[in-house]
Amino acid sequence: MKCKAKKRVIPELPHDLIGEILQRLCVKSLMRFKCVSKLWLSLISDPQFAEWRFELPANRLLFQPDEFGTIKSLDVEASLHDDSATVQLPLPLPSSPIHNTIMLMGSCRGLVLFNYEECGEFMLWNPLVGFQRSIPHTFRDCCYPSLLFGFGYDASTNDYMVVFVELSDLDFDVPDWPSDISIFSLRDNSWNNGMWVGGRYEDIGDDFKAGSFLNGALHWLVLRFSDVSKVPFADNVIIAFDLKEKTLAEIALPPHLADKFKYQIYSLRVLKDCLCVCCVNKDDETNEIWMMEEYKVLSSWTKCFVVSDFDVPFDRFSPICFTKNGEILGLNMGGRIEKRNDKGELIEHLTFHEVPWFYGCNAQSSLYTGRLVSLP
């Protein structure tokens, strides 16, 4: 008598365990594994799954795009002299063929925002998965005087927002004049124009027009004017626009930095999830980096490190991020990419002559971490 062949039973893994395994895979594999089954497609496409963070081998630093429509991406963990650390990426094309000027406006949670100035179009792009989305706009020139801009995320509504703040012309006969705020909501796919907030502010220059995103708000360093005995007087102050509440608030700087004869502030950054300002101490010719260790707590401003001007050719070191080894990656305003230790001492550098895609001292840059994101 022949024995009946036993039917092979393939064990099934619990859905939660499958999700844990998929979470540990690289994004390229995940894109392919969507085709394995409807279950895997459902798991990988689930918004909650997309909220988990998927990092590249390291954070990447994106630099201002070139005129050929490409952008350079630098691995912040690798040596600056490692050629494999630099990748050239083609940018998504806008709907109009006229796009000679491309401006990097910032990144947030794995998405990067560009402005194609000639054709009046924003482009939202995820370099990791190739997603792109066009956003029409009427701001022909983002470098227009007194126009601040930023890109951020409102966690309460799962909404990405593009924000413009147009500071009003100074009029010292008016005690408190409004600034015009325009917001584009990705969820609503529309602009909300005509929001007005009070404040006597003026922008400092092109280096401060891009907002720094932290704790659900965009931050800019501006001049705040007051009327002291009918004589206009200006102080440096940080303004923060809360994307959820749609309100504008002020964050004070360390009091001693108000001495403009001694200190000159030249950069506002976000480091280790803290606001950070960089300034020149004119008395001893040093660059000081101050960090607000507790958000909106004035007494928490702390001087994290000092860089001597003699160690910074062309003056001014602007930190961008800390590496996993505790090194500080930043830009020298004379056109150098530098890595320094936690004491501010130089470890290695590249000059702009060695990096042809680095366009001078005011090149726009943005830190980017690869993520799968669920767009509204």
Rank of each mutant, 00 (worst) to 15 (best):
S134M: 14
G120T: 01
T86R: 15
R109Y: 07
R109Q: 02
N100F: 11
F139C: 06
S107W: 07
D159R: 00
M103C: 14
S146E: 05
Y160C: 08
V163F: 09
D173Q: 11
F122Y: 12
D154R: 04
D159A: 01
D180K: 14
D180R: 14
I181A: 01
P178C: 08
P136L: 09
Q88T: 15
L147I: 02
F114C: 06
A85Q: 07
L111C: 01
T101M: 14
M103D: 05
N158T: 03
S107V: 10
Y153W: 01
N126M: 13
H99T: 10
L128C: 14
M105N: 07
V87Y: 11
F184S: 03
Y144F: 15
M103S: 14
M105W: 09
Y160K: 07
G150P: 02
T138N: 06
D173F: 15
E118C: 11
D180L: 15
S182T: 10
L91D: 01
L89Y: 01
P90D: 06
G152D: 00
I102W: 05
F164R: 10
C119W: 10
A155L: 12
G110D: 00
C108M: 03
S134W: 13
L113C: 13
V162G: 02
P178L: 06
D173W: 14
P145T: 08
P92D: 00
R133D: 02
C143K: 15
T157N: 02
P94E: 01
D176L: 14
L186F: 12
R109T: 02
S156A: 11
M105F: 13
L167T: 06
M161D: 04
L128I: 13
H137E: 01
P94C: 03
Q132N: 09
V129M: 08
F114Y: 08
D141L: 08
R187N: 05
V163I: 11
P94D: 00
N126R: 11
L93G: 07
N126C: 13
S146T: 07
N100E: 03
R187S: 07
V87E: 06
C119G: 08
R187P: 03
V87W: 09
E121F: 09
L147W: 02
L167W: 08
F184K: 05
M103Q: 11
